[in-house]
Write a protein that binds this DNA or RNA. Sequence first.
DNA 1: GCGTCACATAAGTCTGTGCTTATCTGTCGC
DNA 2: GCGACAGATAAGCACAGACTTATGTGACGC
Lengths: 103, 103
Amino acid sequence: MESDIFRALADPTRRSVFEKLAVGAMNASDLRRGIAISQPAMSQHLAVLRSAGLVRERRDGRFVNYEVDPEGLARIGRWLARYRAYWPRRIDDLKTLLKDMDQ
Amino acid sequence: MESDIFRALADPTRRSVFEKLAVGAMNASDLRRGIAISQPAMSQHLAVLRSAGLVRERRDGRFVNYEVDPEGLARIGRWLARYRAYWPRRIDDLKTLLKDMDQ
DNA sequence: GCGTCACATAAGTCTGTGCTTATCTGTCGC
DNA sequence: GCGACAGATAAGCACAGACTTATGTGACGC
């Protein structure tokens, strides 16, 4: 089910974390910089993103580097592709995206 | 914010309602057929989907026909397009990625 | 070994949300 | 008008989830 993915993305804090990770891999402490959020809260958010398949971790000593997991985005893309009949055709970005998903 | 869209899709009942509407427009009573759900619950789900921009209504006498709103899907598409860099271009690439994750 | 750092987990609290039953609004056939 | 129907709204309840503080786990420098 896609519940876990959509539920993970429903939280604005988690979306902003994901956005940061899309720029480049980071550890949990770096992700907290600039946001007023406790360490356990961040850890819990990352756990939700990870179990949704949107993010994956790469251990590095006592640090844990997080990065975007393309499979999570692919799952959303596959879900979206089911409703391609309703896509507005004039938006070029979406057309390109569709072409990628076809392959 | 995309919170309302993702939150709306996080519920499996609402996703199945949306899926039904993707096949064709229906009124609330038709949507209830085959699902064990009360009339107010369905009405509330439709309100959530509508305020998220995923569905729109077309009044027809005492019936209300619901249909997929393409703008909702477009919003998801635009969000997804921001992370195009992480999209696996081909299924083969996706397979390799998955294998890499296994180490 | 020992203290410190990076992060995860536990337990409790508070808010949000999905359900229920009951009731209201508006439209139809007669 | 009146009863029946389609649907929305109200109020209450139970559970999920996002946060907190406190503690646990494992890796590092000395």
